[in-house]
Each structure stands twice: as structure tokens, then as C-alpha cells.
């Protein structure tokens, strides 16, 4: 990738490439994200569960939105995040970027699984069955399959740097395909099940309904930031255990 070599990126970009720098940086940033996540999520939960009005059609089962939608958003954006981190690693040959991508995989997969589970649980009072081949649920299921593929490939290759590169390529191809998959599934769905009642397509939600949702989404982003940093720092400790700075850090 020679044409990238002449790019001059900001200094922090190159600093981030150093495992030691990232380890310290994460340690400094983590408390902020943890605090923000704690405040936002508990604020959103209390508001959503106690104060938000019930939906006029779905009643109180509507409150599932406050965990379902953040989980779905996180699941999707973490796949993209993983692909971007992998691409950065491939282009600039940065080891830490692969570690970040690897740390994000399981987090994204667990949020996608949560979106599926809460979607199914929400489906029971709304549709009468736990599973309906609704467009959104189906594409979430396929997203989970994509995550499974990335995790399986990561597990199958013992060499960390090869695994990082291979999963980065798979994540990039997968994330390029996500819009196509989404489009085709939406289209398939309208063909086979005309105008079913979708869970979350409300044209206008009053602020007392959507502000708690917003709080939950931002809170979950902060939580994921904290978690991915923690997992990346673990990964750094694991892979850099031979280096002198790790020894110096752990001696005192």
C-alpha cells in the first residue's frame, strides 16, 4: 500500500499505534466512560421504566424498546467499527488496531444476540409468537451469522497477526455486504409478508419516550467504549508480556 506511505497523519495517530501508549491512554480514559455509562444508563432505565408513558397500541411491552434498540444499534455499528479498525490495521500495519477489532467482535456479537432475544420477547405480546420472519429480525440474525464467521475464523488461526489480518479482510467484505443484505431482506420481506406490523417504526415519538431511548443509546456506546478498551488492554498485556514496560508496570 505504498500510496499511503506519504500521508502525514496527526501525531496522536502514530502514538496510538504503540501498545504502551494505548495501554496508558485507555487507563486514563476508562473511568470517564465508565462514569458516563453508569449515569446515562441508570438515568435512561429509570426514566424508561418508570416515567415514560405506555404506547397506545402496545401498552407497557413498548418499554422493551429501551434495551432492544440500543442493542441493535450497537450490534450494527460495532461490526462497522471492527471493519474500520481492521482496515486501519491493514493499511498502516498497526498491531493495536487488530487488537481493538478483535476485542470488539465478541462485544458486538453479544449485543446483536441481545437485540435478537429482546426482539423475540417483544414479538410475543405484539405478534403472538416469539419468532416472525420480520425484515429487521431477519437481518439481525444474518448479522449474528456474520459475527459468528469472524469469531470462528479468529479462533481457527493460531498465529495472532495472521488471524488479525484475515478477520480484518472478512470484516471488511462483510460490512460492505451488510447494506446489500439489508436491502435484499427488506425486499424479500415485503414480497412475502405484505405490511406486517413492525416493532419500532413509529412516525413520531413524543420526547418523553425518545429522550430515555437516546440516553440509553449513548450510555450503551460509552459502556462499549469502556469494555472494548478494557478488552484491548487485556489483549495488549497478553501479547506484550515479554516486553520490558509490562514488567516495569507490574513490578510495583
Amino acid at each position: 500500500m505504498s500510496w499511503f506511505d506519504n500521508w502525514h497523519l496527526p501525531k496522536w495517530f502514530y502514538q496510538m499505534a504503540s501498545p504502551k501508549w494505548f495501554y496508558d491512554f485507555g487507563a486514563r480514559l476508562q473511568p470517564w466512560f465508565a462514569g458516563l455509562a453508569l449515569i446515562l444508563i441508570s438515568w435512561g432505565l429509570v426514566w424508561g421504566l418508570l416515567y415514560a408513558p405506555a404506547d397506545y397500541q402496545q401498552g407497557n411491552s413498548f418499554r422493551i424498546i429501551y434495551v432492544h434498540v440500543p442493542a441493535a444499534i450497537l450490534g450494527q455499528s460495532l461490526f462497522l467499527f471492527m471493519a474500520v479498525a481492521g482496515a486501519i490495521g491493514l493499511i498502516w500495519k498497526i498491531k493495536v488496531a487488530f487488537m481493538v477489532a478483535r476485542s470488539a467482535t465478541l462485544v458486538g456479537a453479544s449485543f446483536t444476540a441481545l437485540a435478537l432475544i429482546t426482539g423475540a420477547v417483544w414479538g410475543k405480546p405484539t405478534w403472538g409468537t416469539y419468532w416472525v420472519w420480520d425484515a429487521r429480525l431477519t437481518s439481525t440474525l444474518i448479522l449474528l451469522f456474520l459475527y459468528t464467521g469472524v469469531m470462528a475464523l479468529n479462533q481457527a488461526i493460531p498465529d495472532r497477526s495472521v488471524a488479525g489480518r484475515a478477520t480484518a479482510i472478512l470484516a471488511i467484505i462483510g460490512s460492505i455486504n451488510i447494506p446489500i443484505i439489508k436491502y435484499s431482506v427488506d425486499w424479500w420481506n415485503t414480497l412475502h409478508q405484505p405490511s406486517t406490523f413492525t416493532l419500532t417504526s413509529k412516525p413520531s415519538m413524543p420526547p418523553e419516550m425518545y429522550i430515555p431511548l437516546l440516553l440509553m443509546v449513548i450510555g450503551c456506546y460509552c459502556f462499549c467504549a469502556w469494555l472494548i478498551m478494557q478488552r484491548t488492554r487485556n489483549e495488549i498485556l497478553d501479547q506484550e508480556r515479554q516486553s520490558s514496560w509490562v514488567a516495569r508496570y507490574l513490578e510495583d
Binding site: G59, N60, S61, V67, L114, V121, W122, K124
Partner: peptide, 16 residues
């Protein structure tokens, strides 16, 4: 109880 929807709502939040 959540007007009969308690099980579904609490199950979702428990999973979260």
C-alpha cells in the same frame, strides 16, 4: 405487572 406485560419487559431487561 405492567398490565400483564411484566414477564416480557422484565425478561428483556434481565437479559440486558
Amino acid at each position: 405487572n405492567m398490565n400483564g406485560h411484566g414477564f416480557y419487559v422484565w425478561l428483556s431487561y434481565a437479559c440486558f
